[in-house]
Design a protein around this nucleic acid. Structure first.
Lengths: 103, 103
DNA sequence: TTGCAATATTGAAATGTTTTGATAAGTTTT
DNA sequence: AAAACTTATCAAAACATTTCAATATTGCAA
């Protein structure tokens, strides 16, 4: 597979979204179940503005989608493909306690 | 999947290696076939120091391995798992001309 | 050992990212 | 319409990355 400079930049842009601990944690949390910005804030202990900025980046790359319902906005992973990529990224590093540890 | 701050940092570190156009192009080139630093320099049109620095980062994350033979060092992708990850990253972005276009 | 070739490291400028307080904007309730 | 709540945007400080010229190191050859 040959990768032009232009294509490489495109791929790198998406990979950059996975290159931040905060965003990875947001994606992992959303992969469990969709939730609001406030929920992410309290679940992950990240400041609201930070969560919102991360979500903007993820949104622009179509990694998550948000839907407003009343005052809150519920975010979710945009499709199974993203879950796959996340799962493989985590799995690649390994030693990350994939499931429950053996009793 | 719950991701601790510590684990997330670990995964992000590896993803950061894929978040650079230069490194992606190096990985894609090496995925075709192993080659020397100089070969990468001329194939990709990236300065020697830059290639070498990228390789150091990839090496430290065990994404590539280099073996010295005489004056040159031949680098290659460390294992199939890395190829997988690369392939999926590129594929995720799509529209990147996965194979030969239909005649 | 002198010289030449290939790779690694260093240092520094340019650029990009992350984080959060402050504040704006959109929604519901009263 | 005002107050209360939730999310988005802005601005700026702190920090990290990228790139490459210059230089050091390593290996081979003469």
């Amino acid at each position: 597979m040959i990768l032009s400079e232009r294509d490489a930049e495109h791929v790198a842009e998406t990979m950059r979204a996975l290159a931040s601990p905060g965003r990875l944690r947001i994606l992992a949390r959303l992969d469990e179940s969709p939730c609001s910005v406030g929920q992410l804030e309290s679940d992950l202990g990240i400041a609201q503005a930070t969560v919102s900025n991360h979500l903007r980046i993820l949104r622009h790359l179509d990694l998550v989608v948000g839907e407003r319902g009343g005052r809150t906005v519920t975010y979710r992973i945009s499709d199974g493909h993203v879950s796959e990529l996340l799962r493989q990224a985590v799995h690649h590093v390994g030693h990350v306690e994939p499931q429950a540890p053996a009793v």
